[in-house]
Amino acid sequence: MEHSKHIWRAALILLFGVVGFIVVRQFLIPKSFGIAGHYRFDALAEFMAQPVKHGGRESCRKCHEPPYETTSKGKHARVSCEVCHGPVGDHASKEAKIAVMPKNPSYKLCAYCHQKLAARPKGFKQVSFRKHLEEQGFASDSKIPEKICLKCHEPHDPTGAAGN
């Protein structure tokens, strides 16, 4: 094939390109890729290292025994402290306080769970706020005062001794 010189040259260039790509590719694949599947296995360790923010009720107990006890005895025993207060990770680090824990005294916080809704399970304690306030003898004008619920209910034990 004396007239195919150009073809061989083109083929050689192509070959160099393909081999070059295969070689370069080897260096660009992450080391842990493909160990347990088509992904970078080290990513699992990175996900594990994400900081935990919610510690659960027990993590609050060490410093806040009284409210822990109160809550444990009342109707809110199954409500984790962090549901209303926010995650412990924002509040304490290595058992030392790093920031003030927010307290939300608004009736809107109570409404998240106890506003009367047709979709809520029938057995769950829920009230139509306006109607409930009227029944309790509060004037029901256009605006409901923010802290109105706290007047009668202690949030840690809403139906217990502290309640009205």
Binding site: E2, H3, S4, H6, I7, R9, I13
Partner: peptide
């Protein structure tokens, strides 16, 4: 662009055409 090959013979053209 010609890869240094200046072959325009009938045979090379035929080969090109087939490819």
């Amino acid at each position: 662009l010609a890869l240094g090959v200046y072959d325009t013979s009938e045979e090379s053209r035929k080969l090109d055409h087939n490819i």
